[in-house]
Amino acid sequence: MHIVDGALSNPVVIGGAIASVGGIALGLRALDLDRIPTAGMLSASFFVASLIHVPIGPSSVHLILNGLAGLMLGWAAFPALFVGLLLQAVFFGFGGLTVLGVNAVNIAFPAVLAGLLIRPMIGRGTAVSGAIWGGIGGALAIALTTFMVAISLASSGDAFVPAAKLVFVAHIPVMVIEALLTGFAVLLARKVKPDLFFQSALA
């Protein structure tokens, strides 16, 4: 999902940087002092979860779980995912520096959207219905991320249109996997710690 330096046109890079600064600012405003440890801890867990390789047929995919991050953190998912991307670029050489803004928007905006739209449904009803909504949130976030990556590429030049289409099609199985895993994660969280999604402390 990471776009590298040099691939995008300047307007896309600058637009992404501005949008990510806005998103981070809004996210930080939603994050008061008492929630910093929770947000940091979740940010670290999503970093670790993204190292899990899930088998799919002969190959495997690694998780992104931005939908789940949005469901748990709301707006605070924006700075949390940004920090993850920054660390990945600096210490692991994944992604790039000038495209950090674009990558952050592509991954964090769908997360926040999933959080805003679907989070209210997660705590309602039975654990299973919460899990199904969680799965929908997980799929929605990945679908939107893939779509936004495709748009970023396509708006940087027509030459990228085939690559953009391919990115989208190649990620359909990933959407299914993310939906299933997010759903089961929500199911477990609802059963083990029922008050988790009721806590306003995390919204």
């Binding site: 899990i52 895993l181 759903g183 089961f184 929500v186 199911l187």
Partner: peptide, 8 residues
């Protein structure tokens, strides 16, 4: 999924 949920 349960593994991720438990970690969180």
């Amino acid at each position: 999924g349960y593994l991720v949920g438990m970690m969180l």
